[in-house]
Design a protein around this nucleic acid. Structure first.
Lengths: 246, 246
DNA sequence: ATATAATGTGTTTAATTTACACATTAAAAC
DNA sequence: GTTTTAATGTGTAAATTAAACACATTATAT
């Protein structure tokens, strides 16, 4: 039951005309997308950053971002921005979180939607312009512009969580990979050490790896077998969802 | 290495002046928040909807939403909108996802950020105005306005996932609850049946329940013991993060 | 007083996860 | 070409966790 005090707080649902007026006039905000692109190279998890040339942030690094156009779908904006900055297209892009503090950006009110992507550093050749783009070791990321460190942290944590629930990690590897490379990847993302035998057992028991009957080439040690991931088989399997665990 | 073709795609990083111009002029978009409020009553998971009075959506139900003000933090907007629509404050609100298709809203381009909240139907008395607000059984939600069904689905799935990883569910129950009520809650959220003995064992072994040495009152059967959740103890425990499982 | 319907409790089995050691192979060093 | 080195490749036992399952107890309702 509403008392008089609380009724003051309430506001009737708006009419379409009211909303249209607000949408067209006073209540508009700049919206941007920032892409956090992860890669894997030299057994290290990397993130792709661009040098900021805003005076205020000279010498700092930024995520790959730009404003969303008024007539552009949000997901399409993420694709466009990634392509504009790197030349990459057809990349798995996942929305992670939206950051909307009033004073997060020096140019005014800009709400930004963070997207995360994982790419293969070797196979996707980047269009690196004037050395502006650079792969940074995630363990060594510092002095990012704006609130980009918070965005980066959020995406890294999300990656660490998702990579344990879905086979995302394979996007970071070559199509053909050894089990050692796979384990190195997980150890780099999760920042832990794993038991080699249990790791192998785990992946073999999942039965999503296809033995390519090939061996590693040009490695400075005994070559390991090469595998590829069986996405089709994975798609068919349904996951058990239940299990309370906190 | 960038070749000539790919260079066309690239775009230099903008200056602060360019961005400021865009932020202030052409590239602004209306931004809204929609709140998906879950409750639990009569052993059923419910969602709070408001009757839409837009002509185009007459008779349909909507999520609780409104536009974000230009000088308002995003999270603060969610709090305000929930309070305006329901009178509720100090509620756990979690951002879930941002929906940004160009034509998702009839009033023009409106990008919306979905927030999710869980409240206790009994303890939080809503300011229900002219019967506009109504608790709907989640199993029975249909013909929502705009893309609100997609938003609702996304939030429900998120809830089902989160409730297994974090003790969110307790926000839906009275402070004192019986184990049967707790199990009913989980069964309603996850839409499954669980073994009563294993369920009890699970929660007792987690050791986050405090036995209040009280019994249920006014139940039409043998009263069960009442418990409360030990949030402090929970906060202290750290979770094992590792475990690849897909 | 009886019937009913829910609470409360343990054990056994299966499945999963963890810990752990040695033979094999190819490259590198000599 | 022999030896050394460093990684690959494999199995088993123990511990932990999850799943299946039945009966006595208690308060309410009849």
């Amino acid at each position: 039951m509403a008392n008089e005090d609380s009724l003051k707080l309430l506001q009737p649902v708006k009419t379409l005309e009211t909303i249209q007026s607000e949408v067209e006039n006073t209540n508009r905000i700049a919206l941007s997308v920032d892409c956090v692109i992860f890669g894997f190279d030299e057994n290290k998890l990397k993130v792709l950053l661009i040098r900021s040339d805003l005076k205020k942030f000279l010498g700092k690094w930024s995520l790959l971002g730009d404003l969303v156009f008024p007539k552009e779908d949000l997901d399409a904006a993420a694709d466009r921005i990634l392509k504009q900055r790197t030349g990459l297209s057809d990349v798995y892009l996942e929305q992670v979180h939206t950051f909307g503090n009033v004073s997060r950006h020096p140019a005014g009110r800009v709400v930004t939607v963070a997207y995360c992507s994982l790419i293969n550093v070797q196979h996707h050749k980047l269009n690196i312009l004037d050395n502006e783009l650079h792969w940074h070791d995630v363990k060594n990321v510092s002095s990012l512009a704006f609130d980009h460190h918070e965005i980066f942290d959020t995406c890294l944590k999300q990656l660490q969580k998702r990579v344990q629930e879905h086979p995302l990690g394979f996007n970071l590897l070559p199509k053909k990979f050894s089990l050692r490379e796979l384990q190195n990847l997980y150890e780099a993302i999760l920042d832990i050490k794993m038991d080699r035998r249990n790791f192998r057992k785990k992946f073999f028991s999942m039965d999503f790896l296809i033995d390519l009957k090939e061996m590693e080439q040009d490695v400075p040690h005994r070559p390991g077998k090469l595998y590829k991931f069986n996405y089709e088989k994975y798609e068919k399997k349904k996951k058990r969802m239940v299990g309370i665990d906190f």
